[in-house]
């Protein structure tokens, strides 16, 4: 018998055994296929089941959790990628976005500081991400100093850079409604605090209800006297609505400010997320 054929046949069981375990590259492609086809839960199961380890698998686990919006876990996997890995930069960027979404801005900035300096495109992307995080922290001064350094000729950043600048202008020019002013306005004239907080309809409604109750109390006082149960009942209701309206105006001003901040934060997070995906084509 041909000795080469004998060797080949001898190797066959070994090769068959090797085939039972998928390689890291195969596992990587499979999980990316699952995520790309919207099977995020299956991707998580596949990454949990894999006996493989290493930086690629850490990235894969991080990316699967990131896709399933489990950002805390995603971030911890991205943090385990060694700086020597070719996936280190990408993992750091996705870790930055995960930490930013979680509100851990300092951790996000630390991840960006770890990035190597060699790649100009990645450096520019890191600069853009840093500026975005500074805007999330409302550190306008640092944002203004970083923004001119971003290379806007990169087509992957173009739209988001414009958007970030627009958001910066909005945040800078926004005059926050002070809750105590809203409360004071409502104390002077029921509903005025809500109008000040930008809720005209609610303000008018509060004015009519509280004003109507006060007028009713006055009418009952004139008709029946101060100790009549109708006067006391309408008076008590008026007091409850009057105080409630002051409290409501304070809350409305707070909610209005929070809503404004949340809307802008979401837009900033979206803007810093898109270029990373475009850069790494995920």
């Amino acid at each position: 018998m041909n000795p080469r054929l004998c060797l080949l046949l001898a190797l066959l069981p070994l090769c068959l055994h090797a085939q039972t375990q998928p390689t890291v590259a195969q596992e990587f492609d499979f999980v990316m296929y699952l995520i790309g086809n919207g099977m995020k839960e299956e991707a998580l199961v596949a990454t949990h089941r894999t006996p493989l380890g290493g930086d690629s698998i850490n990235f894969l686990k991080g990316y699967a959790h990131y896709s399933a919006q489990m950002l805390d876990t995603a971030s911890s996997y991205f943090a385990h990628i060694a700086p020597s890995s070719p996936l280190f930069s990408e993992g750091s960027f996705y870790g930055t976005i995960s930490e930013s979404h979680l509100g851990h801005y300092d951790r996000a900035l630390n991840l960006l500081h770890r990035l190597p300096e060699e790649n100009a495109q990645e450096r520019n992307l890191a600069l853009f991400e840093t500026a975005g995080i500074k805007l999330l922290q409302r550190d306008m001064q640092t944002f203004d100093s970083l923004f001119p350094l971003i290379d806007t000729s990169d087509y992957r950043l173009n739209a988001e850079v414009r958007d970030l600048l627009h958001l910066r202008t909005n945040l800078g020019s926004h005059k926050a409604k002070r809750p105590w002013v809203a409360g004071a306005c409502s104390a002077v004239l029921p509903g005025l605090g809500k109008v000040y907080a930008g809720k005209l309809g609610e303000g008018l409604s509060a004015f009519l209800i509280t004003g109507g109750l006060m007028a009713t109390t006055a009418e009952n006082y004139v008709h029946h006297g101060a100790t009549h149960w109708m006067t006391l009942a309408t008076g008590l209701l008026s007091a409850v609505f009057y105080v409630g309206n002051i409290y409501g105006s304070v809350a409305t001003a707070r909610v209005s400010l929070n809503t404004f901040n949340q809307r802008h934060d979401l837009q900033i997070l979206y803007d810093i997320h898109i270029p990373v995906r475009a850069h790494y084509r995920r």
Binding site: G212, L213, A215, T216, A218, E219, H223, M230, T234
Partner: peptide, 14 residues
């Protein structure tokens, strides 16, 4: 009937 028109308006009709 009692002549409390405001109370009628707020408490009843309102």
């Amino acid at each position: 009937i009692e002549g409390c028109y405001l109370t009628a308006w707020v408490g009843g009709a309102g």
